[in-house]
Simulated assay, not measured.
Amino acid sequence: MNSIIKLEIEKKTFKKKGFSILNDFELEVKPRERVSIIGESGVGKTSLLNIIGLLDTQYQGCYTLFDSSVKDLSRNKLAEWRNQKIGFVLQESALINSLTIEDNIKLPLMYANIKKDSTTEDRFNRIVNKIGIESILKKKPLDCSGGQRARAVFVRAVIMNPQIILSDEPTASLDLENREKIISLLFDMNKEFNTTVITVTHDLDLANRHDRVITLERND
Rank of each mutant, 00 (worst) to 15 (best):
R149W: 03
S41K: 03
F19L: 07
R75E: 15
V155A: 01
N97P: 06
K85Y: 06
H202N: 08
H210P: 03
I164Q: 09
P31G: 12
L137Y: 08
D211W: 10
S20V: 06
A112L: 00
A157Q: 02
N50R: 15
N178H: 09
G147Q: 07
I38V: 14
T13E: 12
A150S: 15
L142C: 05
I198E: 02
K140H: 12
L185F: 08
S93T: 12
L7T: 06
E121T: 00
S74D: 08
T119G: 11
L7E: 10
R126H: 14
L99C: 05
T120Y: 04
N219E: 14
T13R: 12
H210W: 05
D211R: 11
N104M: 10
I9L: 04
R75F: 10
S118G: 11
L55K: 12
K15S: 15
L65G: 06
I101F: 07
D24V: 03
V70K: 06
L166I: 05
I51S: 01
I131Y: 02
T215I: 10
I51L: 05
F66Q: 00
L73I: 02
N208V: 00
K16S: 15
D24K: 15
T46F: 05
K115A: 12
S68I: 06
P162F: 02
L166V: 02
D56K: 04
E134Q: 15
R32Y: 14
N129E: 15
L186V: 01
I21M: 03
L95K: 00
G42F: 03
E26G: 06
F25M: 05
K115V: 02
I159F: 02
S41Q: 09
L174M: 06
L99E: 11
K115H: 09
V153T: 10
A152K: 05
E10V: 13
L7S: 13
S41G: 05
F14R: 07
K106Y: 01
W81F: 14
I5E: 09
R82T: 11
R32T: 14
N219K: 10
M110A: 09
E217H: 11
G146H: 12
V35N: 10
L204P: 00
L7Y: 06
I101L: 12
I183T: 09
Q58N: 15
I159A: 05
F88I: 00
G87V: 06
S145K: 05
Y59V: 07
I51A: 03
T57C: 12
E92A: 11
K115F: 02
E40R: 10
Q91K: 09
K6C: 08
C144Q: 11
P162V: 03
G87M: 07
K71H: 04
